[in-house]
Write a protein that binds this DNA or RNA. Structure first.
Length: 377
DNA sequence: TACCCGGTAAACACAC
DNA sequence: GGTGTGTTTACCGGGT
């Protein structure tokens, strides 16, 4: 596998996904100058309507998020409501970080790793003995549950599906005794990180409740996951063998070195199209970071989700940036100030981007709550 | 050594 | 009654 186009200097403080460097596309379509990165605008466009940008909207979003985070332990509804919101407040990068769960259906679990001599990053991948399938994963049950829930489309799962996810992704448990299921349930009940949601009686399929991750604890869970992964990644060369590991029962949930992830990111970043269309489908645009040398604030990842943009009509003739009509989004990225320039010279600071995103997520969360209103939690 | 955390086992109650 | 789910308690081992 050739991932040379995504490499960064080893010493660069690059954005990471579970301890690995985030691939930065070096496609020629993506140009960068000092403090500025131009990102092609995808066919999905955004609408900067007055309503979505109103201070009241922003205020309400911010207030709801702050109230959510002030709770020591969330209720189910708060959990659902806060989930999408908090995700965007404190861990925008985490959204991206966890995207590996969704971008590869066959999650490759991190098994206990035999001490092996790490290979250089670009070394060709040759088959080496893999740890036995009976090796116990290094993740705690909390992490396993967290991953399972995060990997679900609804971000909530019945315990049965959590079992299934673990079985599918960690073959160790296929042969393990049944006690681990008890441990899963024990963790769900005991840990404040997870909250229970009453199932909708109307769709009473299966026993028990649904479980979701409490947004207040999501960051902590993510941190534990990162540390676990990072710790074991540094002790293995498996991390550098995504192609090798593909389709096997072994491996690491590492996407930053994989071509899959790189392609996904590149694809997301490099779509170019006219920005006049308004689409309602949910899409994501990852305004990727500039090269690490630009700023130490490399962990910031701007995500825009379900945001519509109506291209501003520019009547006046003015001196334009050569890139302004290219269909690119320009990310001006300075340590103290970051903003986007959309086609048509519309400028968006990252706070506005975040507000737009939060607004969209808040609406989505509200919809979810309505769906669950009959649950009577 | 004490404490914390995670894993495991067991018992029990409850719902389907 | 069997099975699955949820809760609680207790114990143990490892790490700090």
């Amino acid at each position: 596998m050739a991932n040379t186009s995504h490499t960064l200097p080893p010493s660069s403080p690059c954005p990471t996904i579970f301890g690995g460097p985030l691939p930065f596309s070096s496609s020629p379509q993506q140009s960068s100058t000092k403090g500025r990165v131009s990102l092609p605008l995808s066919p999905i466009s955004f609408s900067l309507s007055p309503t979505t940008l109103s201070p009241a909207t922003a205020e309400s979003v911010h207030s709801s998020s702050s109230s959510s985070s002030s709770l020591s332990h969330c209720t189910a509804s708060q959990c659902l409501q806060g989930q999408s919101i908090s995700e965007n407040i404190s861990d925008q990068n985490d959204l991206t970080c966890l995207s590996w769960l969704h971008q590869r259906g066959n999650l490759l679990p991190l098994q206990p790793l035999a001490k092996m001599t790490p290979l250089p990053q670009q070394e060709s991948f040759t088959l080496t003995p893999l740890p036995p399938a009976s090796s116990k994963p290094p993740y705690s049950f909390s992490s396993l549950i967290f991953m399972a829930i995060e990997d679900s489309s609804e971000k909530r799962l019945p315990v049965k599906d959590i079992y299934e996810w673990i079985l599918n992704n960690f073959p160790y448990y296929r042969t393990a005794t049944g006690g681990w299921r008890n441990s899963v349930r024990h963790n769900l009940s005991l840990s404040k990180s997870f909250c229970r949601i009453q199932r909708d009686k109307s769709q009473s399929v299966g026993k028990g409740s649904l479980w979701c991750v409490c947004p207040e604890y999501r960051q902590a869970l993510l941190e534990v996951l990162r540390k676990t992964h990072s710790y074991h990644s540094t002790n293995s060369n498996l991390i550098n063998k995504p192609a090798l590991l593909e389709g096997t029962d072994y491996g690491v949930p590492e996407v930053c070195n994989s071509m899959e992830m790189s392609d996904t990111l590149s694809h997301t970043l490099l779509l170019s199209a006219p920005s006049s269309q308004i689409l309602t489908t949910k899409h994501q645009i990852f305004a990727e970071n500039p090269p690490c040398l630009l700023t130490p604030d490399h962990e910031e990842i701007v995500t825009m989700e379900s945001v519509e943009y109506q291209q501003k009509e520019v009547s006046e003739v003015m001196e334009k940036d050569p890139l302004s009509d290219s269909g690119y989004i320009e990310l001006h990225y300075y340590p103290s100030h970051q903003y986007l320039v959309l086609p048509g010279d519309t400028e968006l600071d990252l706070e506005t981007v975040e507000i737009l995103q939060l607004d969209a997520e808040a609406q989505e969360a509200a919809g979810s709550l309505l769906d669950l209103a009959g649950g009577g939690y």
